[in-house]
């Protein structure tokens, strides 16, 4: 079990995430989704990866995959500025609360999602939300796209520095196209 970057998120339990070191491999998992959802958290607004914001990678990824999107916190405004209208604008715990229900209609009203990706949340807050899904939403898989180990996710990236993360996201988007 890899340790999370922030020790506040250390797992007290047996059921932890699988760290996927290789972007292509993660791409393969994601591609299996029938109704993927990408949840944007507010930290992706400001994170700059060599002139490109993290949120832009999220947008590219959602587009490449045709994933539904959910803007949490105040990310909706930034997405609109980037020319993307999110499919929904719930707050983080609200979307998670919906996702718990296997019969929920989903943000596009086509049924609940089967793979949910998260990008740009505080790691402690995000890991708590992922715990909810781990315990109460066995019908879906969760994937985190930030450069930190998220023990409560189904699949997580490893802890990595910004340049490696940029490379990872680029490869991931490529693998989805």
């Amino acid at each position: 079990m890899s340790l999370p970057l922030h020790y506040v998120n250390v797992l007290t339990g047996l059921k932890g995430c699988r760290v996927i070191e290789d972007a292509q491999a993660l791409g393969k998992i994601i591609k299996k989704a029938e109704r993927p959802l990408l949840v944007f958290g507010p930290r992706c607004i400001d994170i700059d990866l060599g002139g490109k914001k993290a949120i832009e990678y999220g947008i590219e990824l959602a587009k490449a995959l045709g994933a539904a999107t959910c803007a949490t916190a105040h990310t909706k405004k930034k997405l609109l500025e980037c020319g993307v209208t999110p499919d929904s604008a719930y707050d983080a715990v609200e979307i998670i609360n919906h996702l718990k229900d296997p019969n929920w209609k989903g943000v596009k009203k086509l049924g609940n999602h089967d793979i949910v990706m998260f990008l740009g949340m505080r790691t402690d807050f995000g890991n708590q939300g992922l715990s909810t899904l781990k315990h109460y939403a066995p019908h879906l898989k969760t994937i985190t796209l930030c450069p930190y180990v998220y023990p409560h996710a189904s699949f997580s990236l490893a802890n990595m520095k910004a340049d490696k993360w940029k490379e990872y996201l680029e490869n991931l988007v490529k693998s989805l196209k």
Binding site: L11, T12, G13, K15, I96, N97, Q128
Partner: peptide, 22 residues
């Protein structure tokens, strides 16, 4: 109630620790 467990285990008594996942 919406729960976000901090710990997957319970360690309250000497029967434990008990794994409460799933």
């Amino acid at each position: 109630p919406f729960y976000a467990p901090f710990c997957d285990l319970c360690c309250f008594c000497t029967y434990g620790k008990c794994d409460l996942t799933g």
